[in-house]
Simulated assay, not measured.
Amino acid sequence: MPAQDGAEAVRSAQQAEVEAGLRSANPERFEAAVQAAVRLGAEGDQLMARLRDLRGWRAVYILAALGDVVGPYGSEVLRQTIATPGPGTSDRRCAALLALAKREKEQASDVLLAAVEDRDAGVREYALLGLAAVGDQRARDVVSKRLEAILRSRKLPIEHFQDVTPVVLAAVYLLRQASDSAHAERLATLLRRRWRYLSDRERQWFARYWPSLDPDAPPSSDLAPPEPETLQRWLLADPLFSRPAIV
């Protein structure tokens, strides 16, 4: 048997084994098969995209894994999942939003924009996460209104245990997409007006990345907003983006 034919036979056998594992009822075998599918690249993308009938945690697992491969099939599955709301779909749609942002980057902006005002709170937050990390400028007005609504609806006291909050995500996106100083000034005015409705973690984040925003800081004629590239690097370093979903 020629070497090329032998390699092809081995590859086909690997794909068949992975495909069987993806249909296995055994959780360990299923998880191992998903990891193997990711390693197969585009071929694994096709195998996972065929699994339209999975439910529960297995469906979420597959959707998350599709964010770590590139191929011609997975993006359609992710987009269809995001566009299909209903009872019990929140986890799947959130996983699909993150996966689509990871794999399509700026090209996912249309879907992320559509999800910013979704009825599901988790979906709204994952849409903001994706836009903050990779979105283009088209969601600027919608995100600005979303941020106003978030701050307007807050009640005191407020506590967060991480920096990645909807307020921070909206601010990162709006600063990344600010086309002139007027956009940054409008954002600063809103945040200062609602400053007492920010959590301690949010104030600490702004103190690190935008210290001149603090209304109690010494007056300055220069708002000095952070560089968009700095903000994007900060968010893309988060494990949600920097590490594979399935390890």
Rank of each mutant, 00 (worst) to 15 (best):
G21W: 02
G67P: 13
L63Y: 06
D53W: 02
A42F: 01
G74V: 07
L54H: 03
G74T: 04
P27K: 06
A16W: 10
D53C: 01
R58P: 01
D45R: 08
G41L: 02
A20M: 04
A32R: 15
A59F: 01
L51F: 04
R39C: 03
G67I: 11
D68H: 05
A16Q: 15
G56C: 00
V38A: 01
G56T: 01
V69Q: 11
G74C: 07
Q80I: 00
R55N: 04
R79F: 01
A49E: 02
V69F: 12
Q80P: 02
R29G: 07
L63W: 05
A49L: 04
G74Q: 03
R58I: 03
W57T: 14
G41K: 04
R23D: 13
A64L: 13
Q14S: 12
R50V: 01
G44H: 01
V70M: 08
V38D: 06
L51Q: 13
D45I: 05
R29Q: 14
R29E: 12
E76L: 14
L51A: 05
A13R: 13
L51N: 08
N26Q: 10
V34L: 00
P72W: 07
G71W: 05
Q15T: 13
N26T: 10
L78I: 11
A20F: 02
G56W: 03
R29A: 11
V38K: 05
G74P: 09
I82F: 06
A33K: 08
V70E: 15
A83E: 14
A37E: 10
L22W: 03
A32K: 15
A20Q: 13
D45S: 04
V60S: 07
Y73S: 15
V38G: 00
A32L: 11
R55H: 11
A59Q: 13
S24K: 00
R58Y: 01
L66N: 04
A33P: 03
S24M: 01
L40D: 07
A25R: 14
A37Y: 10
G21M: 00
A20S: 13
R52H: 08
F30E: 01
G21H: 08
Y73H: 15
Q14C: 11
Q15L: 15
F30P: 04
E76A: 15
V70G: 08
R52D: 06
A64C: 09
W57R: 13
V69H: 11
P27G: 00
E43S: 11
L66A: 07
G56V: 03
L63K: 07
G21K: 08
P27H: 03
D45W: 07
A42D: 01
E76Q: 15
E19I: 06
E17G: 07
G44A: 09
E43V: 08
A59C: 06
L47G: 11
R23L: 11
